[in-house]
Amino acid sequence: MSDDHGSSLISARVRHVEALLESRGLLDAGEIDTRIDEFAAGGTPANGARVVARAWVDDGFRDRLLADANAALPEVGLSMAGGLQEQRLKVVANGPDEHHVLVCTLCSCYPIALLGPSPSWYKSEAYRSRVVRDPRSVLAEFGLDLPAGTRIEVWDASAESRYMVLPRRPEGTEGLTEDQLAGLVTRKGLIGTAAV
């Protein structure tokens, strides 16, 4: 049996189905965890941070990333091809007057290869329903108070593409190395619920 069950009704149902599959020899014990681990293997926000740092120091890479992210990712040793099929990635760049934020209103679609497993709040009904309707207030609750003149663009990742936000490079970071810059980038920054 796999670990990490909640106590909800759906967890009980999944546990029951899993036990039945195991008892009939259709599923090895622990196989679901193994498959999930394989799917998530290597997925961590550090990957997304590397992409961002490269885009901050290399304008050519930034342009290629924004034009065709799937084609640009191999330049930093990454890809979106870890699942059953390669997923299309679109990177959206924050600017002086625009800020992007991601959500999946229908479920919890998320670029696992670049950001790792999604945080629980990303999957919450509150976030999914409110951020499309009133993103400015939701971002303020995350501690991100955007200037009134900043246009907010919400991306609903409810279909085939996955998205990642390219945050703006913080001021005063001219002397940092690419690795040091990557260290500044947070998971929330890559989702758009933080500035960086």
Partner: peptide
């Protein structure tokens, strides 16, 4: 074909100054 379609928030909800982009078939 699948498209990124951008909606003005006011066209979805009646108010709001943001945009929402949805991927649609």
């Amino acid at each position: 074909p699948v498209y990124h379609v951008r909606f003005a928030a006011r066209d979805l909800f009646g108010d709001g100054d943001h945009g929402v982009t949805v991927e649609l078939w």
